[in-house]
Amino acid sequence: MTTEARPADVVTPQPAPASEESAWRRRHLLDIDDFTVDELELVMSTTDTMKEVLSREVPRVPALRGTTIVTLFYENSTRTRTSFELAGKILGADVINVAASGSSVTKGESLIDTVKTLQAVGADVLVMRHNRSGAPYLASRHTECSVVNAGDGLHAHPTQGLLDLYTMRGALGDVRGKKIVVVGDILHSRVARSNMWALTAFGANVVVCAPRTLLPAGLGDETEGRLPPVRVETDLDHAIEGADVVMALRMQLERMHGGFVPGAREYSRLYQVNANRLARAKPGALVLHPGPMNEGVEISHEVAHGLQSHVEEQVTNGVAVRMAVLWLITRQTTRGARLAARGSL
């Protein structure tokens, strides 16, 4: 184990200024739709600290030693689960992975039962991926554990939204006024929803682009802040003009055959992010994708692996953002408070 603490090396992730620290009151991370700019800034600055930890020769700190994190995944996701597992381990937490494949209902054990059981065996944090929108909210109301939403149905994927924001800020400095085009299956995308909240909170000019059949109701209408204020386009060639960032979303195979679009051929002709289209964006525009990519469908191979692609950086930043989130929310638990009081993080 490399969580062995060497006092000289072990620097606590630099606590944020007291005013910001006290602004953080969240025990759960369910969504970022109600985050204030200050809260988002705190996550960003904490992520900077975590990036520094990751850059060390031995990237391990015992900040969360004694904390038990359970990843409870009702859907498969190698990438997100591994990212959380690594984030927990780097911070010295014990991480247990539970693959709850199949729905809780078919297993005959309710989500509430599962969550209560995990709490009883000593979990402090539940990192939860679920195929049903809102499931983490239900879980959070029936447990003392902190619940981190690692993606719920079509609703939200808050750590993805945060890491995308972090990646864009890393490259652009500030996202205010920047044109960010999200293209693909917006209707079924929790990644798109979380990105829209995070980016519009910072005043980005967000344009979502999709065929009408893959756009959710009400988006782009005047909803008085009840939905993120984005512009909606159906023509990618037009939407992409002058973009600072182009994010392509995964087009799932079952949607391709589900009558939403005529098929992969037409979809890729109209909505693929490729070199020709990217040329219409700002020179050096960032290309992002939450992965896994269908190269040749929503994104061309050359763009996916080209100089403008920041896809790998997204993955690395994902670990740092999740470290930041785990660290911040555990400050709010009893055990987190105890550890903090001990002053030996």
Binding site: A217, T223, R226, L227
Partner: peptide
Amino acid sequence: HEGWVSTRLGLRGAP
């Protein structure tokens, strides 16, 4: 119901 709330919640709506 299909509308801005279903979009907000990520739930499938009936038009």
